[in-house]
């Protein structure tokens, strides 16, 4: 960025930048604050940066190495990608055992960031199977399997499509939830029993399960700010989902639709 500070002359900012990028990728993939701070500290130690102070918030992170430099990163998009969390965790362990040049670290970090992603079409299948399994757990009968599968896959499809357009998270949740309910309504209209099980299956694809888990873990570790922010995010998301799911169901019931 800064032409006066070329990479060869002053290697420390480059290391710091790479460390900050690693932390940012972790945080954006849904890791807990303690893990992000741990990983960054471990990397810093591996590169012999002693007085490194790291502050991680849910939406931003700061790394400071002594009096030399501070690197700040703003985290905007957040999603769930546990492959990235695992890969960067592994990378930081490897590096602290056998240090590698910074350029190699940067390259391997880039690889880790794009770690083992399944194709978008495969994700639809996973969401469908997940929704179908949930529908059976919630007291559905085997006849509910197919609509629940459709509901899960459709919900995931809409969510993926909306994520690419960059719509705000809450709105995306709301619209996805509206779509998630439609197969259940169709099934209920055709006289299938337990439409509720289908509905729950479709909506579970959207549940902020990771946010709740990380919020609890952050809270127990004493990262109160992050815990509070994540609980708020989970509540907002759950509210948006409930509102989105209620709307078509309300219309359907108001029109005198069949719902057992």
């Amino acid at each position: 960025m800064n032409p006066n500070r070329s990479e060869g002359q002053n290697p420390i900012p480059k290391v710091l930048k790479v460390i900050a990028d690693a932390g940012m990728a972790l945080l954006a993939s849904g890791a807990e604050v303690a893990r992000v701070e741990d990983t960054m500290q471990r990397l810093a130690k591996a590169y012999a940066l002693d007085a490194v102070e790291v502050i991680v918030l849910p939406t931003a992170l700061f790394v400071n190495a002594g009096t030399q430099t501070t690197v700040i990163r703003r985290i905007r998009g957040r999603s769930v990608n546990l492959a990235v969390v695992t890969a960067i965790n592994q990378l930081s362990r490897d590096v602290s055992r056998h240090p590698i040049p910074v350029d190699d670290l940067e390259r391997r970090l880039e690889e880790a960031r794009n770690a083992a992603r399944y194709r978008p079409s495969a994700n639809l299948l996973f969401a469908g199977v997940g929704a179908a399994a949930i529908s059976q757990l919630m007291g559905g009968s085997p006849i509910n399997l197919i609509p629940a599968f459709i509901s899960g896959a459709l919900t995931q499809f809409v969510r993926q499509a909306l994520r690419q357009t960059g719509v705000a998270g809450g709105v995306a949740d709301l619209v996805s939830a509206i779509v998630a309910v439609l197969p259940a309504l169709a099934a209920a209209h055709m006289g299938e029993p337990h439409p509720g099980a289908i509905l729950v299956g479709g909506i579970m694809v959207l549940t902020p399960g990771l946010l709740i888990t990380t919020a609890v873990r952050d809270g127990i570790q004493g990262d109160l700010l992050s815990a509070a922010a994540r609980i708020l995010e989970a509540l907002l998301s759950a509210g948006a989902i409930a509102a989105g799911a209620s709307l078509p169901l309300y219309l359907y019931l108001a029109l005198g639709g069949r719902w057992v």
């Binding site: 990608n81 546990l82 492959a83 992603r117 996973f126 997940g130 399994a133 757990l137």
Partner: peptide, 11 residues
Amino acid sequence: TAVAFGLLYQV
């Protein structure tokens, strides 16, 4: 369910 959602979260 756990496996399906694990896959969805790229595990």
